[in-house]
Design a protein around this nucleic acid. Sequence first.
DNA 1: CAACCGACCTGTTCGC
DNA 2: TGCGAACAGGTCGGTT
Length: 333
Amino acid sequence: MPELPEVETVARDLRPRIVGATIVAVRVSWPRTLRDADPPAFAAAVAGRRIVAVGRRAKLVVIELDDDRALTIHLKMTGQLFVVDRAAPDDPYVRLVLEFGDGRDLRFRDIRKFGRVGVHARDAQTGRLVESGPFFPRLGPEPLDPAFTIAHFRRLMRGRRGRLKPLLLDQSFIAGIGNIYADEALFEARLHPLRSVSSLRPADERRLYRSIRTILGEAVERRGSSIDDYTAPDGDGSMQERLVAYQRTGEPCVRCGRPIRRLVVGGRATHFCSWCQRLPAIDRIAVAAVLRRAAEARRGLAGHRDPAASAERTRRAAATRRAQARATVGSIH
DNA sequence: CAACCGACCTGTTCGC
DNA sequence: TGCGAACAGGTCGGTT
């Protein structure tokens, strides 16, 4: 589920609650939640350790311990972290619990069981996570880091060949962007998701760089987008109110009024305005086949329903589900 | 290297 | 009312 802004919010909410806490025991109800699927080894590694810092890298929550190690937690689609009193009622979707010496629990709840928790080495000198090893993916730079400049961005783009949307989702290119913010950044930059990277001119690259930072920055300020199962320990974000492309199929584009269109790119739903995010001539031919196939697929879906109404239904259902998730979490300090 | 596919999971919605 | 298919914000490994 969560992308960079949501994970950042979770880390910030967790920090004041768990820094200083000592882990005295571990409960694992779904062993595969652990990246090495070995609960006894995990318990032995963390028992007695004190938490000294909480941060984020890409979409990972990083919990640093008072030895040379850190826990990384990837929430994937439906993971949630919250702190409750040990006596708080159990929940069938809680997969892993860190029990603290002060009577509280850090609980990891994850309906779809995609989330993963790993133990990683930490550089004793710098306190930074060692970003290597069998379970650690190659991660690109942090887009909101001040060190991530337009020059840096240009250098990364050089030599890349594919299309924009898959590139933005590639965590080894830039870390932390997911499906929502990829669509929003491309809309903001007025770039078509199927635009070829090699066709970008300097002005296009500048707009893309700026839109990525603007969208992610605002999303962090707004505590992320609360959609479906995502909610943070200190409550919902509000970025969902500002999304203008994602899940807006059929609704009028906020810039030109033409309907937002939906395509599947790399297996992911992709939302854009085909007027504001036009393809240059070079790309049109290459992309024509993709668009034709999408049109055929749409026609194939008999009983063509109203896409805007459908999107609205989807959002309402999502809000309901989120309310249930929130009620379940019921986090305390 | 780039893109696509099925896996991994569960819950919800929609068409029939 | 019930049933199956499609879909959901992420990533991985194996193919093409």
